[in-house]
Design a protein around this nucleic acid. Structure first.
Lengths: 98, 98
DNA sequence: ATCATGGTATCGTCCAACGATATTGTGCGT
DNA sequence: ACGCACAATATCGTTGGACGATACCATGAT
């Protein structure tokens, strides 16, 4: 249930961080965990894949420290979606945070 | 995708309104629609059922205006969940709304 | 050339979302 | 008293996402 609610938050976090800079899977997992969102790779990677497939993120391979990493950054479409999400959050806050 | 993000918001809305007073299906649908969330009965009712089944809401039948309505209100468990969600929203806002 | 490591990918299962359609209970008109 | 129309709730079949667990891959070190 809580998970159900937080999955949206997780996607927003991802878009937000991919907007501020490049991200990759494991880093994002740690970041999310530090915010109290426990998520497994079996959940995160499919989310990244679908975000890329749908055009919200772009991927770039890089060998860093002897490991192949897939770096993601946001696209224009992703930015639009993020803005829309923020707008909805503002509305939500205005309504329920009284 | 957007839908995926907003489903959590919808659950929060439901808990919030069920906290302020009694709600029922169709009214909740209109309320959500007025906030820009389009949702069908095939989505809403199962959500209400599962929220009740899991103890976040309680149900009460009432005949109003010749129609049988199922009124829902929040439970203690639901209030706790709502508070937790609000806390997470605050954290999210603090992080991404800069 | 083997191994450990950091990182990514996917498999099987289970549950949720969805639009569409069916079902229910009630009051009203006749 | 009967059937009909209506508001509201419920459910069906399909499709898609979440999850933990497990497998996979590329590289550098020894």
């Amino acid at each position: 249930m809580m998970r159900n609610i937080f999955l949206g938050f997780i996607r927003i976090h991802i878009l937000h961080h991919a907007n501020k800079g490049e991200i990759f899977g494991v880093w994002m997992m740690d970041e999310l965990r530090s915010h109290g969102y426990s998520i497994s790779t079996g959940t995160l990677y499919p989310i990244l894949h679908s975000l890329e497939k749908d055009g919200y993120l772009t991927k770039r391979d890089e060998v860093a420290d002897g490991k192949v990493r897939k770096y993601y950054r946001i696209t224009e479409k992703g930015i639009t979606a993020l803005e829309e999400a923020k707008k909805k959050i503002r509305e939500l806050v205005d309504e329920i945070m009284v």
